[in-house]
Every structure is written in C-alpha cells, then in structure tokens.
Design a protein around this nucleic acid. Structure first.
Length: 322
DNA sequence: ACTATTTGACCCCA
DNA sequence: TGGGGTCAAATAGT
C-alpha cells in the first residue's frame, strides 16, 4: 500500500532523527560525570533506532500482505466458525519477544502494553518445565479484536520470557489508557512501581523464525518510547504515529508478579519477508529494577511506548555484544 | 452481579 | 497419535 509505504518512510525518518538525538545526548553525557549505565543506555538507544531504521528498510512491503490475512471477518460465536479459527490463526503474523526481567524486587514484569489482555489458558509445554500462558484481547467479543499472545518462561533462565504475539489489535478504543494501564492484574498489584520507573535495557536477540539470527539488536523497545530520566525529563519524546506495522503486530508490557509467565516488554521485531510473517525478535532485558512501563498506544501497538527509566539501573553491556 | 482466572477437556494439525 | 491451542465451566475477586 502506498500509504503504508509513506508511513514507513516517516517511521524511518523518525528513527534516524531519534538516533541522532540520542547520540547528541550521549555526547553531552560524555562531557559530564554521568553514570556508565546512563551512557550504556544512550548507546543502546542509538543502536536501537538504527536497528529499527534498518529493519524498516528491510521490511519494506511485506507488512501489508499479512495485514489482510490476520483478521477474521466476523466475530464468530458459534462452534462451527470456531473450527476455522485455527486455520486463520496460522495466517496470523507472529512475533516472539524474548524478555529478560529481573525480579529481585519482588516483581517481574508485566504485559502492560496498553492493551487489555485476558488469560484464557495455560498449558504445560513439552520440554519446558514452565507452563505457557495464553492471552487474548479482552475486547475480542465487543470490538472484534483478535489479538492474542502467549507467554512462556524460559527453562534456561527463569528471568527470561518468550512472548509471542499473534494477530493485531483492532480495538483501538479498547487499549488501556497509556497513563494508567490499570486493567492488568499485574499492574494493579504493583501500582507504585508501575508509575515510577523501569529500566529498559534490552537487546533483541533474534530468535530465528527462519534460521539465521538476523541481527536485530534493539536496546529499547523500538518504539517511540518517551524515555524519562528520574527527573521526568523526556529525552526522546518522539512518538511514532501511523506506524505502518501496527496493523499486524503487537507491543508488550512489563511487570507482573501475578503469573510467572507474564513479564513483558515492548517488542521489537523483525519481519520475515518471505511469507509475510514476522520473525521473532527477542528482547532480552537487563533490568535490575523494573518499575514501570506503559504504552501510549494509538493504532500503533508496536511502537508507541512510553518508558520510564530508572537512571540508577544497571545495564549489563555484555548482553548486547554479539 | 460482573469480570477475570484457573483448569480439565476438546479439537486441530504436524 | 501426541502436542499445542482454545473453549468453557467452575471458581475467585471486586
């Protein structure tokens, strides 16, 4: 689609500009007595922006196709129709995030991504000692929103969660208020933390949906996070609107002491240009202390995030080196 | 009463 | 045929 192409360009432009902004910030930081963590953070943000920009370039055109495949035409309340859902499900674009969350402070992460999710199942998965949880959009019935996600805690590192998003949100109105995403139980349990800060250092290790580890290393949710320092300074206020990918993907969240599987973060992703699906970028968060993340989403579930960052958080830079 | 979660059962597909 | 995904009744929480 042409409009989408144009949106992608905008997106690209924003990412490049953002990268530049952060680079400037970093430059300024270098002249100060700022913490190594802050510098790491800025570096990662820069890398994130450029990664995303490259991703957009690579993606180019593969998105719109999948858009048309993912949404069932009608709400399907009867069982006959339900029988077809699995087939439709197969056509849905899929994204996998690997999220690493530090739970030292008693909470882990949550799926606060600006959307409202309802858990509809949990299953033990072969080869993984942790169960997989299944979530669907709360507004499936009311707004015909068919987005779903799965959360699987990694067996190797219980702080890592693989989050798989399927389908897209059509419930723009159903999205949680970015400023107060209170619908998720996780957030309700940790209201305070959720408002203060969270550190969003993450790498996107690409899980391979294909095979090769396409390098998608993002530092932060490649979205338009409004990054905040402790002083609430937005140093990256850009908002990616009209995100071209929004039609088919996701976003994530953070903190959720509730279910062990529910720790999420915003999701970067890679597009698998073949088949119009999305390869699974994995986010690996090095987050000693996650306090809050919420998203201000419009129709861009993927990129509209607003992260608050605790400047004191520690960032393990080694996680980002490959 | 309403909404969310849990969990056993069912169904589809590889 | 078994694993994974979803349904839906039971249960819990507000």
């Amino acid at each position: 689609m042409e409009s989408e192409s144009s949106l992608e360009k905008q997106e690209l432009k924003k990412e490049l500009v953002q990268g530049m902004e952060v680079a400037r910030k970093l430059k300024a930081e270098l002249g100060l007595e700022s913490s190594a963590q802050n510098r790491d953070l800025l570096v990662e943000r820069i890398l994130s922006s450029y990664d995303k920009a490259l991703l957009i370039l690579r993606w180019n055109g593969s998105v719109s196709k999948s858009h048309t495949l993912q949404q069932p035409q009608s709400p399907l309340p009867n069982k006959q129709e339900l029988k077809h859902t699995s087939q439709k499900r197969k056509l849905m674009p899929k994204l996998v995030n690997r999220v690493k969350v530090n739970s030292e402070n008693g909470f882990e992460g949550s799926h606060e991504d600006g959307y409202s999710w309802r858990k509809y199942g949990q299953k033990n998965i072969l080869g993984n000692k942790y169960p997989r949880s299944y979530y669907r959009c709360t507004f499936r019935n009311t707004k015909d929103c068919w987005a779903t996600k799965q959360v699987q805690r990694s067996e190797d590192d219980h702080n890592i969660f693989d989050i798989t998003y399927k389908g897209s949100h059509t419930c723009s109105k159903g999205k949680k208020n970015a400023a107060m995403p209170a619908e998720s139980p996780e957030m309700q349990e940790k209201p305070q933390e959720s408002q203060t800060n969270f550190q969003n250092m993450l790498t996107v290790a690409t899980a391979n949906l294909g095979n090769e580890e396409t390098a998608c290393s993002f530092t932060s949710p490649l979205t338009s996070f409004g990054f905040r320092t402790q002083e609430n300074q937005n140093f990256l206020p850009s908002v990616l609107e009209n995100d071209p990918f929004s039609g088919s993907l996701f976003q994530t969240h953070l903190l959720s002491p509730n279910t062990p599987e529910s720790n999420y973060f915003p999701s970067p992703f890679c597009a698998n240009e073949l088949e119009g699906t999305y390869s699974n970028p994995c986010l690996e968060f090095k987050v000693p202390e996650i306090i809050s993340a919420h998203t201000s989403t419009t129709n861009s579930p993927i990129f509209d995030f607003d992260f608050s960052v605790d400047p004191n958080f520690r960032f393990n830079a080694s996680r980002f080196s490959r």
